[in-house]
């Protein structure tokens, strides 16, 4: 297990930083510690820890200083770290999510292809060719930061972010890809749209994807998109059809 740096994030949080890059090794270390701490919290052995927040490269531990002092928490974290194997992984899911690429669904597909010197078909082929890892969820509720995109598709963000990115937009920038769970401002390159609601506060598990999940994309027709979108609205869409398997990664 690589040893993280302990960074102060105010008086009620510590960030345990494993590195400063986007790297699947770092994510494994973060995830292993997260799983281990979650187990401790659930078992009532870390009273005063409110929640943990896994990111690309760090785990933030939020605690109540009126219940648990920082020194005591640090000691416990050091002890837990020494007992944690980096290889321990949480169970994750493998999804195959439908995407309607191009035209109004992916308004940047044409310009992206042009600036990469590829055809639109090739851009779609390269985007569906990878199995992506969900590095973390954040920024907006349910927003999945996924990677890694084929290097032939690396594009910068727009210099002028869009004021409104439509909900469900599938986008790329650099080595990352994501699906926008909400209509929001955004600077990523929009290739297509996914008809599934990535976040619904009323579901027992509000976020569709979780850190550690694997995601494949499948290109679908506009007619198929509309059909799925209609079922989604009617509340009759069965998500299990998009689940390839539960895996122990």
């Amino acid at each position: 297990m690589p040893q993280p740096r302990f960074l102060n994030l105010g008086d009620r949080a510590l960030t345990l930083e494993f590195g400063e890059t986007i790297d699947q090794q770092l994510v494994s270390a973060v995830s292993a510690l997260d799983v281990r701490l979650t187990r401790e919290i659930t078992a009532g052995r870390l009273n005063g820890v409110i929640e943990t927040v896994p990111t690309f490269r760090s785990l933030t531990v939020i605690f109540d200083p009126l219940v648990l002092s920082r020194t005591k928490l640090q000691d416990r974290l050091i002890a837990v770290l020494s007992e944690t194997e980096a290889s321990v992984q949480q169970s994750a899911r493998h999804w195959c999510l439908p995407v309607c690429y191009g035209e109004d669904y992916g308004p940047d597909l044409e310009s992206a292809a042009a600036s990469l010197g590829l055809t639109e078909e090739k851009v779609i082929d390269l985007h569906v060719s990878q199995t992506y890892l969900v590095y973390m969820i954040g920024f907006l509720p349910g927003f999945p930061y996924m990677g890694d995109v084929d290097p032939a598709l690396y594009l910068p963000r727009h210099t002028e972010p869009r004021v409104r990115v439509p909900v469900g937009s599938v986008a790329i920038t650099g080595q990352q890809t994501a699906i926008y769970p909400w209509e929001s401002p955004g600077g990523w390159q929009l290739l297509g749209r996914c008809p599934l609601a990535l976040f619904d506060a009323q579901r027992s598990e509000p976020a569709l994807l979780g850190p550690g999940d694997r995601v494949d994309f499948q290109s679908i027709s506009e007619a198929h998109y509309q059909e799925l979108a209609k079922a989604m609205q009617a509340g009759s869409l069965d998500f299990s059809q998009f689940l390839l398997q539960e895996v122990n990664a």
Binding site: L9, G10, R12, A13, T15, E17, E20, T21, I22, V53, T55, F56, R57, S58, L59, T60, I62, M136, G138, F139, Y145
Partner: peptide, 11 residues
Amino acid sequence: EIISDGIVPGA
């Protein structure tokens, strides 16, 4: 810029 990490209120 940094590679995104955790934020809490007050940061």
